[in-house]
């Protein structure tokens, strides 16, 4: 068996065993393809994403874990480091700073941390980045909260 498959299966088992371990992350593997995963993460509290549930899509390369998984937001999100249209994420550990010791679960945790601590200096979403860089925290938060309500919260009624 390829090392990537063996390792992904170990991660799958770990996720199944420790479902309750991290209530903010729900990782699901596509049972017909172990290289495709989905995750639901809760927006961190005291951020404009609080109360929202965001869906992530993982595409794992054959060389995993020597190469990082590709992750993007399926749920629309207004965040300086997430591409507004494609959901692409700008996060160092998914690029140069990748280490094979990361798991899909810990990548989810890193993404939650990124949601709470946006990096306005390396924006994929320039509108969001500019709001933050110009010091308009309220403007950024209002936009982010609006999109959280629109896209990441279950519709009521």
């Amino acid at each position: 068996m390829q090392p990537s498959r063996a390792r992904l299966f170990k991660e799958y088992k770990e996720v199944q065993k420790e479902k309750a371990a991290d209530p903010d992350i729900q990782l699901v593997c596509d049972e017909s393809n172990i290289f495709k995963w989905n995750a639901l993460i809760k927006g961190p509290s005291e951020t404009p994403y609080e109360g929202g549930v965001f869906q992530l899509a993982f595409s794992v390369p054959e060389q995993y874990p020597l190469q990082p998984p590709q992750v993007r937001f399926l749920t629309k999100i207004f965040h300086p480091n997430v591409h507004f249209k494609t959901g692409e994420i700008c996060l160092d550990i998914l690029k140069n700073a990748w280490s094979p010791a990361w798991t899909l679960q810990s990548v989810c945790r890193a993404i939650i941390a990124l949601m709470a601590h946006p990096e306005a200096d390396s924006p994929l979403n320039c509108d969001s980045g500019n709001l933050l860089r110009s010091g308009d925290i309220r403007g950024y938060q209002a936009m982010a909260r609006m999109y959280t309500r629109l896209a990441a919260m279950p519709k009521k009624g």
Binding site: P3, A6, R7, K10, E11, E14, P65, P100, A101, T103
Partner: peptide, 9 residues
């Protein structure tokens, strides 16, 4: 203490 890379023994 599995190997951090392959997660196996």
């Amino acid at each position: 203490n599995p190997c951090p890379i392959c997660l196996g023994p």
